[in-house]
Design a protein around this nucleic acid. Structure first.
Length: 849
RNA sequence: GCGAGCGUGGCGGAAUAGGUAGACGCACUGGACUUAAAAUCCAGUGACCAUAUGGUCGUGGGGGUUCAAGUCCCCCCGCUCGUACCA
């Protein structure tokens, strides 16, 4: 028998698919389309296990849908702008373009070895001007429609990377890549009006039936819709007003102070008459007041000399503070404090000795004897509140807003936590923002005929900051309007810009316009999107917004990009440390009697926690090594077999060995008989054994189909293995047996094919089926084999299992009861007649005594 | 703090219109083959009791509903993820 040689057969079939354009996709109007997409990778140079998992999941779905008669689009490309290329340019003196292109070549070679059913003619790379030129046009369209604008804001400045980060890129006050402490800085930048779509983004979540609830909830919280009122507090002294947002206008009679964010515009105004204010502001410890660590610092404020008028109480003046806990980015950057009913305000009032006026109590007309020890934030009835007295909180909110509106001092309003998306990055390796600044004409967009604005190729990376800003030959241009000297925008786009629409571009990546309407209308939306849960709010929300914005400028006809979403768990591995507390790679370890030793110096190594594979902890396994040792089919099989896709999985040597052992056994089974002259057809069963193997086969088809539809691939594999065990037990004595066995093995191979396509193609070929298994339809279930006449029925006494009987389904209830009562282990419990017998047909019989 | 999810053998995990808990695999143990080991094949494998037919216990803990609970309800504990002075 020929030995199973995965490397040889994998190469063979990969060549076959490529030569035959097996996975090339085009519009076929008579077929139902299916667009399956995995999140495209950043080309770091080498694939890792996370990629292997993600792409294996997608490939299984692609091949499965294809077998089920769908017209499948399954593309792959490269999210190829981004900082690592630039860092490599600085440290290795390689041009980002050269570095990136080399990485893409490497990764593509590695991906091809996995045998993924991509249509490589759809490949795209976002750093190519053929891709980003469309992005520039889209941006200009957005700008013209008011969806893109420039403003000065306070940004998160990463002093190491010399760039602005999005809030999402700041983790606990530190840059997500550099880990440097983030500073606040005022800067001009370009923004996309995602807030324009806040309501739509929130509302449309409801229609995303096949998205994980968890992801939808995260997006909902991120958008952060709240109902309340804007309220104006007049400050007579300076003839100005402070507008606050509040969800609790009902507590206005309990207001005892106003607090402004240190970044509030009025603070600047106050500074003029208050020279020492700058000094005092420093005391607020503002460098620590980013959103992440606010809760760890003390709530402190500066009392200004100003007072504001209460909207409802004549002549009542409320002191105005500047406080460190008021956020400029949320609401209006100013609040009114009601200490009795908000814990933050309560703490603040205690510290500065401010009034604590109780205006809501649990019971109507409740009189409190003792002082409040903490804020009362629950619902109740209004008190001490003039015209609101006796109303419930909800009613009081309505009434107070109505009164504010009558007084022209406020209005009902809805506030969102969501902020506009800042897209400017002070970086070279990104898409240039197509804007020209002219002293006379102001901001000008680059005329269409001059697009794309290409990145200059000769560039010096040795200066700090954005290399583009020192590139004078590139910066200096003529104004498109007045033709006088002008300058280019030197910022480039956030790389989330590219990934927000690539899935639409995949439908025709070489079309002269951004979107080929005909192709997009046919293929979009993406039917199944698969990727890491870490993109739950960033990439997925931006993409949803982008599609809605592109829809508004009539570039696209859909309003949601991803019909169904699956998020995969992480690939984990045991960590190891040596005596010097250094991490050790798993490949440098050998196991001996449950202990671990370093291969290099034979020192004992201690096993640590099982954690997400990461380079820093060295608990990584290189997929390339696995594939060259065991083959892609083994890697694919193992990564799907042990855990459900949504959950984290542990990569183990034993698991891989197990997968490899299974495929070797499959190989043996195929080669143990000569099937070459046996026809592939379903014949009638003659005896019970034949019936049994048919029954197993069809039951397995049914179970595997359901498991795949449910995204429970580990269960699909368990069932495939069970069928395999049965096939191994099936003895072939006659020609008819051989026909039956070939039929069942063939079906087994079709089920296994989406998981391990190479070995299945080869096996299919070995048993002398002529076509490629990739062109074979998913098997149908012959339901006549699902129903077995003989079944085993468990017998319970008082819910405890005491035995089982073999019954025929044709037996009536009386017959079954008699059989059960006379069962020898059952009868010995029956000292008296049973009180009750419960029979659930074909499931169980329970005798109550 | 809030929100979500999870908790089943030594391990990964099966099983929810309530109906034989532990499928499938990993690890382990015994046997076969071998001079030997590896590989492979066969058998066993939740715990405890019993020579055995069998019995008792058992799905984080406690209570409840039911003929019957991993599954439904209430309380508690633990872990993971998300998120946070959101006014």
């Amino acid at each position: 028998m020929i030995k199973y040689n995965p490397l040889k057969i994998e190469q063979k079939w990969q060549n076959f698919w490529e030569k035959n354009n097996t996975f090339f996709s085009k519009i076929k109007k008579n077929l139902k389309k299916y667009y399956i997409l995995e999140m495209f990778p950043y080309p770091s140079g080498d694939i890792h296990m996370g990629h292997v998992r993600n792409y294996t999941l997608g490939d299984l779905v692609a091949r499965y849908k294809r077998a089920n008669g769908f017209n499948v689009l399954h593309p792959m490309g490269w999210d190829s702008f981004g900082l690592p290329a630039e860092n490599a340019a600085i440290s290795n003196k390689v041009h980002p373009k050269t570095w990136t292109e080399k990485n893409i070549q490497n990764m593509k070679t590695q991906l091809k070895k996995m045998g993924l059913s991509y249509d490589w003619t759809k490949e795209l790379s976002t750093c190519s001007s053929n891709y980003y030129k469309h992005e520039q046009k889209i941006f200009i369209e957005f700008y013209k429609k008011g969806l893109a604008y420039q403003k000065e804001t306070i940004v998160n400045w990463d002093p190491v990377e010399q760039t602005v980060l999005a809030n999402e890129q700041v983790i606990e006050g530190r840059g997500w890549r550099s880990d440097a402490k983030i500073e606040k800085k005022r800067m001009k930048g370009w923004f996309l009006k995602i807030t324009d779509f806040a309501e739509e983004l929130l509302e449309d979540l409801k229609a995303l039936k096949n998205w994980p609830e968890k992801v939808k909830l995260m997006q909902k919280n991120w958008i952060g819709k709240s109902f309340g009122a804007h309220i104006d507090f007049h400050v007579e002294e300076i003839n100005d007003k402070i507008t606050v947002f509040s969800t609790r206008p009902d507590t206005l009679f309990g207001a005892s102070f106003i607090a402004l964010s240190p970044d509030h515009k009025l603070v600047n105004k106050i500074k003029k008459n208050y020279p020492s204010l700058n000094k005092e502001l420093k005391k607020l410890n503002l460098n620590n007041t980013n959103e992440q660590n606010l809760d760890r610092i003390e709530k402190i404020g500066i009392k200004t000399s100003l007072k504001a008028s209460h909207p409802f109480i004549k002549n009542k003046l409320i002191p105005i503070f500047i406080a460190n806990f008021v956020l400029i980015d949320y609401g209006t950057g100013a609040i009114f404090g009601c200490p009795a009913h908000d814990q933050r305000d309560f703490d603040f009032a205690k510290k500065y000795n401010l009034e604590i006026i109780e205006v809501v109590c649990k019971e109507e007309n409740q009189k409190r004897k003792s002082k409040l020890t903490k804020a009362y934030t629950e619902s109740g009835y209004l008190t001490n509140s003039d015209f609101l007295n006796g109303l419930t909180v909800n009613d009081a909110i309505e009434v107070s807003i109505k009164r504010l509106e009558e007084l022209n001092l406020g209005s009902k309003s809805i506030n969102y936590r969501l902020k506009d998306w800042g897209v400017s990055r002070q970086r070279y390796w990104g898409c240039p923002i197509p804007i020209i600044y002219c002293k006379n004409c102001g901001i000008q967009t680059v005329p269409e005929k001059d697009l794309p604005v290409k990145l200059p190729e000769n560039i010096n990376f040795q200066n700090s900051g954005n290399p583009l800003s020192s590139q004078s030959d590139w910066i200096n241009v003529k104004c498109p309007k007045c033709s006088k000297d002008a300058k280019r925008e030197t910022d480039t786009f956030d790389t989330f810009f590219e990934s927000s629409w690539y899935f639409a571009r995949f439908t025709d990546p070489n079309h002269e316009d951004a979107i080929n309407e005909k192709q997009a209308d046919y293929w979009l939306p993406v039917d199944q999107y698969i990727g890491g849960v870490e993109h739950a709010v960033l990439h997925l929300l931006y993409s949803r917004f982008f599609i809605k914005a592109m829809n508004r400028i009539k570039l696209i006809n859909i309003s949601e990009p991803f019909k169904s979403l699956q998020t995969q768990g992480m690939v984990c591995h045991q960590t190891y440390k040596n005596n010097n507390n250094e991490w050790i790679f798993p490949k440098d370890i050998r196991k001996l009697n449950d202990k671990f030793f370093s291969i290099n110096d034979n020192q004992m190594v201690l096993p640590g926690r099982i954690e997400k594979m990461s380079k820093s902890k060295k608990n990584v396994v290189d997929p390339n090594i696995i594939i060259s040792k065991y083959g892609a089919d083994t890697a694919r099989f193992f990564i799907l077999s042990d855990s459900p896709p949504q959950r984290d999985m542990e990569w183990t040597d034993e698991g891989v060995e197990g997968a490899s052992r299974f495929l070797n056994k499959v190989w043996q089974l195929i080669n143990s008989n000569d099937f070459t002259n046996i026809p592939f057809q379903q014949v009638k069963h003659i005896n019970e054994n034949d019936f049994h193997i048919f029954s197993c086969t069809f039951k397995t088809i049914e179970k595997v189909t359901k498991a795949i539809d449910d995204f429970h691939f580990n269960i699909a594999i368990a069932n495939i293995r069970s069928l395999f065990n049965e096939l191994n037990l099936y003895k072939t004595e006659t020609e008819n047996d051989m026909i039956i066995k070939k039929f069942c093995i063939s079906n087994f191979l079709i089920l296994l094919n989406p998981i391990c396509p190479h070995i299945c193609e080869e096996a299919w070929h070995v048993i002398n089926n002529k076509q490629s298994i990739s062109d074979i339809s998913w098997p149908r279930v012959d339901i006549s084999y699902l129903d077995e006449d003989q079944i085993t029925l468990p017998i319970q006494i008082n819910g405890k299992r005491r035995g089982e009987i073999k019954i025929s389904k044709s037996f009536n209830e009386k017959e079954i009861q008699n059989l059960a009562l006379n069962h020898k282990n059952v009868s010995r419990f029956l000292n008296e007649p049973p009180k009750k017998i419960i029979y659930i047909p074909n499931k169980i019989i329970n005798i109550v005594i």
